[in-house]
Simulated scan of single mutants.
Amino acid sequence: MRHHIYHILKTWFPQKDVGQWLLATIISTRGSAYRKAGAMMLFSDTGDQFGVVSGGCLESDLFHHARKCWMTNTSRTVTYDMQEEGDVAWRLGIGCGGEVTLLLQPVSEHNDYLCLPQVLDALETNQAVSVCHRLDNSKAQIHIGDKPDSEDWFCHSVSPPNTVFIAGGGVDAVPVAQIAHTLGWQTAVNDERARYARAGDFPSSCACLAHPVAELKEQTAYQQAQAMIVMHHQVEMDARFLASVAAFPPPYLKYLCLLGPMHRTERVLSQAGIAVEELPVPLQSPAGFNVGGDLPESIALSILSQAHAALYDKPYAQSSSDWQCDSIQ
């Protein structure tokens, strides 16, 4: 189960009328906590749990509170204080040392499913949405948009999953797509060459494309990409792709990398006829953090770790310029 709210809602939506459902949302934290305010998950009365609000230590107790919400058809707030010896969180042996408060809300047709289908619609079209939860325990209600004129609301922004575009569909692109899938990212791989980017080699969630570079600027996967990984292992193809990125920069792009050592990158840029400053974001080459290892899986891990840091505004510049082997051509 992937735990981004988009994947949670995609899994829940076909089952929304099967049994009773409850939405649990973290509305505040103090000190150490596994997840922060805005994290959400869904429970059903049959025992289904989609998403996480802790490392698995609170969910069983939350289910007991969920039953009370279903019986009374009302919301309730629950606080777990990991510092207080008399609190249930202490007895559960969590030991995080912080405090977490959650809002529990029944979800049903009678309250328009708390607008969760509309949230899903927005995420499917790559739109962020502001979600406001009514804190009055007498009524479960969610409002989408600006905060209502009342203090009794908890509001947070819900963003679509991260998106990555892999330019080049060789064997080492497969672990990149697999790790991205595990992270819950929306992934596309493109390679116009025959026998590359074959759907059977990649996770089912990965869009496998075969567009010529000249057509990519019109493709949704290209336009929505936040991270781009260039790994054709062919200088001329890498050059054409980077020239396209320079000429038609994707509007959401935050991370761009090119496999191979610096001398190869210089050849690629020369053939593309561009300077590195013409690219919309800094080009990371060699790609990824120096985590050691030279297998495709290790390189995929290093690249996606660096991309992850970039997408979450953490430091991601490569400190060593020579960790990828010179045999990458």
Rank of each mutant, 00 (worst) to 15 (best):
K36L: 14
A37D: 12
A37N: 12
G38Y: 02
A39G: 15
M40G: 11
M40S: 15
M41D: 15
M41Q: 15
L42I: 15
D45I: 14
G47W: 09
G47I: 06
Q49W: 03
Q49P: 00
F50N: 15
G51W: 13
G51Y: 12
V52I: 12
V52N: 14
S54C: 05
S54L: 10
S54Q: 06
G56L: 08
C57Q: 03
L58C: 03
L58R: 07
E59W: 05
S60Y: 06
D61A: 07
L62R: 10
L62P: 03
L62D: 06
L62N: 09
L62V: 11
H64S: 06
H65Q: 11
A66S: 10
A66C: 11
R67G: 10
K68W: 06
K68F: 04
C69Q: 01
C69K: 01
W70S: 02
W70M: 05
W70K: 01
M71V: 08
T72I: 00
N73G: 05
T74N: 01
R76D: 01
T77W: 01
T77Q: 14
T77H: 03
V78P: 01
Y80C: 00
Y80R: 00
D81W: 04
D81Q: 09
Q83W: 00
Q83D: 08
E85S: 09
G86A: 13
D87Q: 04
D87R: 05
D87F: 00
A89E: 06
A89P: 05
W90T: 06
R91K: 15
R91H: 13
L92S: 05
L92A: 08
G93C: 05
I94Y: 00
I94E: 01
G95E: 03
C96A: 08
C96R: 09
C96S: 11
C96G: 10
G97Y: 13
G97Q: 10
G98P: 04
E99C: 07
V100F: 07
T101K: 12
L102D: 09
L102V: 14
L103A: 14
L103V: 05
Q105A: 07
Q105S: 14
P106R: 00
S108I: 03
S108L: 10
E109D: 13
E109L: 08
D112F: 12
D112H: 15
L114E: 03
L114D: 07
L114W: 07
L116I: 05
P117T: 15
Q118T: 15
L120E: 07
L123V: 06
L123I: 05
L123M: 06
E124F: 01
T125Y: 02
T125Q: 13
N126V: 05
N126T: 03
Q127W: 02
Q127G: 02
A128P: 11
V129T: 12
V129R: 01
V129P: 04
C132T: 08
H133Q: 09
H133C: 08
H133F: 10
R134Y: 02
R134F: 04
R134H: 07
R134L: 13
D136L: 11
D136C: 09
N137L: 13
K139S: 12
A140D: 07
